[in-house]
Design a binder for these strands. Sequence first.
DNA 1: ATAAGTGTACTATTTAATATAGTACACCTG
DNA 2: CAGGTGTACTATATTAAATAGTACACTTAT
Lengths: 125, 125
Amino acid sequence: MFQIDRFGRVPIYEQIIEQTQRLIASGALKEGDQLPSVRVLSQELTVNPNTLQKAYSELERRGICISAPGNGRFVTGDAARIVGEGLKEKLGEVRRISEELCAAGVHVEQVLNAVSAAYGKETKD
Amino acid sequence: MFQIDRFGRVPIYEQIIEQTQRLIASGALKEGDQLPSVRVLSQELTVNPNTLQKAYSELERRGICISAPGNGRFVTGDAARIVGEGLKEKLGEVRRISEELCAAGVHVEQVLNAVSAAYGKETKD
DNA sequence: ATAAGTGTACTATTTAATATAGTACACCTG
DNA sequence: CAGGTGTACTATATTAAATAGTACACTTAT
């Protein structure tokens, strides 16, 4: 369910946050779905439970999941919407990088091609 | 010449590397131009000279600048080409983010618009 | 020759973030 | 009651980053 990279400089707890949101954005996780418990997931990933607790707390703070003490932790109804709003930041990131490429003299077509390729379509060269 | 953000999680020395390369990519720094000395720049930015030395060493390792001991540090003739090759990584980054946006159901037009906006052109909605 | 500026090479220390370890307690369900 | 869940602590270890300070070699200009 999760894939941890222990060597990059992105903290594990952020990877959990990021990947959880991605699963929601893609629809793999929906409202009411239960997230793996910190204990179970800590064994599965060989990661300290506290690290996962930190990630889950943040997701909860964002309104993406809610804890039912003694029961489990579940995806909220607002999760998809909240994650969707966060995607605007990624669009801003695309713009920021594009500005750099523009300043560096990279042709706009090359950048558009990178986008199109990601969407599985090809524009002519 | 440089703008340091002390609060983000990008190390100062990486910001120096990044910004130097950006100045070269944009043509603001050309072959033969002298880079500010570690001592001068450390006072200007209120940053430890060792931190700048670390950044410069890495730029040198990449072949972007060369030191003339006792004289100064200068942009190499290969700098622009080397930096240019590095831009391909940024294109890959655009593609990676675009894939995420695609998976999250964001329309390709929105992403293309972000790129176009960065290039100062507008596509129709 | 000297002074001033340059690069370089160290060692030591501090700081902050991250992750781990261990414990304890409260809650819900079967 | 047992077993799973969330939660809240404290303590420790590790690492990267940055700072502080010193020393030395080299080049240029005076």
